[in-house]
């Protein structure tokens, strides 16, 4: 048992030496693997952050209520009072139609269009901040408000969260496709690296076979090479993502100051990091294994 461990340890140290002998070529390979992995994993990290942000924002739902045109100020005051007294409503905000038009003019830059209007097409509106938070309660409140007279349109503003969720689903699929393609590329890279190694060590393999090496013995260093290269590639991807997030967070800080928020991009969790390393190691092994089983049997001593 001790001998077996020693042999494996020896193979690993030989491979590390081999990697150090060609630092340039080895690091290029590892960086290529790192970049290939960092694209889908980086996409995954961004998606996860957007999802977190969406959850935060969707936590403060609003209901917009638009009044029928021509509602008199008395009626508006009555509705306002009724809304304030409603048990499910925390507070309300009245947006008169003239103010709404002005906001439209300023925020959308449609001033020319707005100036061309002979009359204000916008209704008076209330923005309602409900005390209830679950989507079921919100929908109940919305249906209740819909039954009131003079309230022409009631809009629950959490609909955008559903749209975002659909968009995120799309994003996840895109990341998944990207991950599948680039995993294939990673396997191909390892496959080729190992193929070249087998060709350059042809003599050694022949001699080893003549001396009585089993296929397992001959395969071992190549498989370890794939594993180690995959592991280092995964670590490179992790570093690339960590560095990119650092840069992005630095560039986010002036935005945070402007909006008085404390949003920052979260890095990969420990679980995700370990999964990344495990997955890249597995892909390295797979590429090496495919290459070895393709090429090794062709080398027979003559």
């Amino acid at each position: 048992m001790k001998n077996v461990l020693f042999q494996h340890g020896q193979v690993i140290s030989i491979i590390l030496q081999r990697l150090l002998q060609n630092p340039f070529a080895s690091s290029l390979n590892i960086i290529v693997i790192g970049i290939a992995l960092s694209l889908p994993i980086g996409g995954y990290v961004l998606l996860k952050n957007v999802q977190n942000l969406a959850h935060q924002l969707a936590g403060t739902p609003q209901i917009s209520v638009f009044l029928a045109t021509g509602t008199s100020p008395d009626e508006i005051a009555r509705i306002s009072k009724q809304l304030k007294e409603h048990s499910a409503i925390d507070r309300i905000e009245f947006v008169p139609r003239d103010l709404a038009l002005k906001q439209l003019q300023v925020s959308t830059g449609l001033s020319d269009v707005v100036a061309g209007l002979t009359q204000n097409p916008l209704p008076d509106a209330f923005i309602i901040y409900p005390t209830a938070l679950t989507s079921q309660q919100l929908e109940l409140l919305r249906d209740d408000l819909k039954s009131w007279s003079k309230l022409e349109h009631v809009q629950l503003d959490s609909a955008w969260a559903h749209k975002l969720e659909a968009l995120l689903k799309f994003g996840r699929l895109a990341v998944f496709i990207l991950a599948a393609l680039l995993s294939f590329a990673l396997v191909a890279i390892t496959f080729n690296t190992i193929r070249l190694q087998i060709l350059t060590q042809r003599e050694e393999i022949e001699v080893a076979k003549l001396i009585g090496a089993t296929n397992g013995f001959i395969r071992r260093p190549f498989l370890y090479f794939g594993i180690i290269q995959g592991l280092f590639g995964g670590a490179a991807a992790w570093l690339i993502i960590a560095f990119s997030l650092l840069l992005l967070n630095i560039s986010l800080s002036p935005l945070n100051q402007l909006y008085a928020s404390s949003f920052s991009l979260q890095h990969l969790s420990i679980n995700d990091s370990l999964t990344l390393l495990g997955f890249s190691t597995y892909l390295g092994w797979l590429g090496a294994w495919l290459s070895v089983s393709q090429h090794l049997w062709r080398i027979e001593p003559k």
């Binding site: 003599e203 001699v207 076979k209 003549l210 001396i211 009585g212 090496a213 089993t214 296929n215 013995f217």
Partner: peptide, 18 residues
């Protein structure tokens, strides 16, 4: 095959050294 060859010592004309 490997286990058969472990019983044999092979000496080659071209040495086959590494």
């Amino acid at each position: 095959l490997p286990y058969l060859r472990r019983n044999l010592g092979l000496v080659f004309q071209d040495h086959k050294l590494l």
